[in-house]
């Protein structure tokens, strides 16, 4: 499908019950779509809701209204109203997410963390591990670290594990939340190449990049999230 991701009329606010129920609006009336092979970058100042949008698309945050439509196994799934099983299936097969921070699981080696998304899709463990090794080499993660659990890794090392894990599958939609934030110039370039390769494969990508150089290299267009900001609505 040409446009695997369509976001329509999405509203979200947080209700902080622990603070007397004050309501913090996050985004109003979000509308956009991402085409196959395109990399859309979310722009706007810090705190405007960029990360929140990615989390909503992934099903990690709930929405108050609207639809998040994903082309999944030849049918359209609305993440905003889908049941947990469906969302897990979408995450497993169609939509990947490279988060800012790696949530580490005790005792699982870095290489197995990276291989896991393939293993749960039924790929043989040995092959999955091979692919994982390839990605980790590309990202210049020292071989000695591969068999260690990432909980003691540095920020940049953890991020590379995260990236490898996000890029290892052939998901049609990829959400990237500051994937290069803790990386040096060499590895930033590696990631840029990896994104370009995904574009060639027709993957639709939506990302947040603070680094200007990377943004220039990967963005096909920039979506200013301020357009969806509730503050604008108040101002108006």
């Amino acid at each position: 499908m040409a446009t695997p991701l369509v976001v329509s009329e999405v509203f979200k606010s947080f209700t902080m019950h622990l603070r007397d129920g004050i309501k913090l609006p996050v985004v109003n009336d979000v509308n956009f779509s991402v085409a196959a092979g395109e990399c859309v970058v979310l722009g706007g100042p810090s705190g405007i809701g960029k990360s929140s949008i990615l989390k909503m698309l992934y099903g990690n945050y709930a929405v108050d209204a609207g639809q998040i439509l994903v082309d999944h196994k030849d049918r359209i799934v609305d993440i905003a109203s889908a049941d947990p099983r469906t969302i897990i299936d979408v995450r497993r097969h169609t939509m990947g997410y490279v988060s800012q921070f790696l949530r580490t699981v005790p005792r699982v080696a870095a290489i197995d963390v990276v291989a896991e998304p393939l293993v749960v899709r039924g790929v043989e463990a040995a092959i999955a591990k091979e692919n994982a090794a390839e990605l980790l080499s590309r990202l210049n993660l020292p071989r000695e670290l591969w068999s260690l659990p990432p909980s003691t890794f540095s920020g940049g090392e953890q991020q590379r594990v995260n990236i490898a894990r996000g890029f290892i599958t052939s998901h049609r939609v990829l959400l990237l939340d500051e994937p290069t934030a803790s990386l040096d110039a060499t590895n930033r370039r590696v990631v840029v190449d990896m994104i370009a390769a995904k574009k060639e494969e027709g993957v639709a990508m939506l990302g947040i990049f603070h680094d200007e150089e990377v943004r220039e290299a990967v963005a096909d267009r920039i979506l200013d999230v301020s357009a969806f900001s509730p503050r604008k609505a108040i101002a108006a």
């Binding site: 209700t15 019950h17 622990l18 129920g21 099903g59 709930a62 947990p84």
Partner: peptide, 21 residues
């Protein structure tokens, strides 16, 4: 009731918010 990471990262009910915090 919902997806685990959703309930933990975006709790809606007052009690859930209390638990998570």
């Amino acid at each position: 009731h919902g997806l685990t990471d959703r309930v933990l990262d975006d709790p809606r009910e007052p009690y859930t918010q209390l638990l998570v915090s």
